[in-house]
């Protein structure tokens, strides 16, 4: 076995940065935009939200959060399928699907955040 070229350390680093980013940022964003604003507890104006979103710092943070969170998902989901459903024999297609999905999602996020 050739361990020198293993991508695992990089994938683990992305997983763990994504886990930290998601833990720090997702609860408040999900609470505000997924529960509080839909239930009308708060009603920030469209102009304000649009101004915040068009700030390049916001876009950079949202891109970083999206990409890292997706790689966090990819890594965990891959091992959930391996262990939870004992699908290790399909390891290669599962890994391709998970990390491929994370790459595709990151590209979509970048394209969206650059063009709005």
């Amino acid at each position: 076995m050739n361990h020198r070229r293993s991508p695992e350390p990089l994938l683990w680093l992305l997983f763990s940065s994504g886990g930290m980013a998601a833990a720090l940022m997702v609860p408040i964003l999900l609470f505000l935009f997924g529960i509080a604003i839909p239930l009308d507890w708060f009603d920030p104006s469209y102009d304000h939200l649009s101004a915040v979103l068009h700030n390049w710092i916001t876009r950079l943070i949202l891109f970083g959060l999206s990409a890292l969170a997706l790689f966090h998902w990819a890594h965990r989901f891959r091992y959930t399928l391996y262990d939870g459903l004992q699908l290790k024999r399909y390891g290669t297609p599962i890994a391709a699907l998970c990390y491929g999905g994370a790459v595709a999602g990151s590209v979509i996020a970048a394209a969206l955040l650059l063009t709005i």
């Binding site: 997702v26 969170a69 998902w73 955040l113």
Partner: peptide, 21 residues
């Protein structure tokens, strides 16, 4: 481990929100 699926859902939801704004 399944929490990651909901983290991925959040990213989808966030991008839909960004697109709408």
């Amino acid at each position: 481990e399944l929490s990651a699926v909901f983290v991925a859902w959040f990213v989808v939801y966030l991008l839909l929100l960004v697109n709408a704004i």
